[in-house]
Write a protein that binds this DNA or RNA. Structure first.
Length: 275
DNA sequence: CTGCATGTTAGGTT
DNA sequence: CAACCTAACATGCA
């Protein structure tokens, strides 16, 4: 499940492979993964050069020459993989970009087919959802700004952290890890979190994300980076997916709670419920 | 075979 | 408008 650290790892890995490459052709094996006009995509993409690859939240933006960009959301199981041409495409390979004078190709693979790509004018990128509706980047926001956002909300902190319009890029894994680090119960109402704890929560979010990026993300399921390698952070997760194991800080059994339909893993001793 | 879990978001209701 | 709920997507697993 690619969240911010996984997407960042993919973007960094992809950037130095594809920037400057000219797209020779595309093969669309599963048309439904395109969220734009198919004909336009096949007509407009070949011949363009990749200018930049960047991330915003969990979205990947591949900027092409001539004022067009590709927007990619990997959702649960999407992968963008730099692969030797000679390697036969697998069952879940849905789109292939070939490059001029290059023995590698860029493949979009997605076991569950929830992810998508679309082509649009670079100038219109930020006018449209989902980019338009994203909250601030958690690694760029300041403590006071974050605390301001918290006090204006009455929602429970866990679903709030998962809300991409509140803060962009957190998913279930890093939300739980951050709450554990900050010793905050996932059901706490955002506006009931003290200023001190609010600042602590942002620092927890930032240190977890930074550490996860350093370890190239967490492969708890199918995640692979831009060259097909798994991440290394899954073994450093403290609570996520560890129901019944002991809390690394206090030894108490980690519990799992379903909050707005999502699993939440937390330590009932370290993360006391305030209400 | 059934039913559930999975993350995200669109779309609905309160 | 904010908060909350549910459906939908495809697959794998108990």
């Amino acid at each position: 499940m690619p969240e911010l650290p996984e997407v960042e790892t993919i973007v960094r890995g992809l950037r130095h492979k594809v920037v400057g490459q000219r797209i020779g052709g595309v093969s669309l094996r599963l048309p439904k993964i395109l969220r734009c006009d198919q004909g336009e995509f096949v007509r407009r993409v070949p011949g363009r050069t990749i200018r930049d690859v960047r991330r915003r939240g969990k979205l990947i933006i591949i900027e092409l020459s001539g004022g067009w960009s590709l927007l990619v959301h990997l959702k649960m199981t999407g992968q963008l993989v730099w692969t030797p041409q000679a390697q036969p495409p697998q069952r879940h390979t849905h789109l292939v970009f070939r490059f001029r004078n290059c023995p590698f190709q860029l493949r979009y693979c997605d076991q569950r087919q929830f992810g998508y790509l679309l082509l649009l004018e670079t100038a219109r990128l930020s006018d449209l959802p989902p980019l338009r509706d994203l909250g601030p980047e958690p690694l760029e926001i300041g403590e006071s700004e974050f605390v301001e956002l918290l006090v204006s909300r009455t929602r429970r902190i866990k679903p709030l952290l998962l809300d991409q319009s509140f803060v962009a890029g957190l998913g279930n894994i890093y939300a739980d890890e951050s709450l554990w680090r900050a010793r905050a119960h996932p059901l706490t109402r955002a506006n009931r979190i003290s200023l001190r704890k609010g600042r602590e929560l942002l620092r927890a979010v930032q240190s977890v994300l930074t550490a996860a990026i350093e370890h190239r993300g967490s492969s708890v399921d199918t995640y692979r980076d831009a060259v097909g390698q798994p991440g290394q952070f899954q073994s450093r997760l403290q609570v996520y997916g560890r129901e019944g194991r002991s809390c690394p800080r206090c030894g108490r059994r980690i519990r799992r709670l379903v909050i707005s339909g999502r699993s939440s893993f937390f330590c009932p001793r370290c993360q006391r419920r305030l209400l």
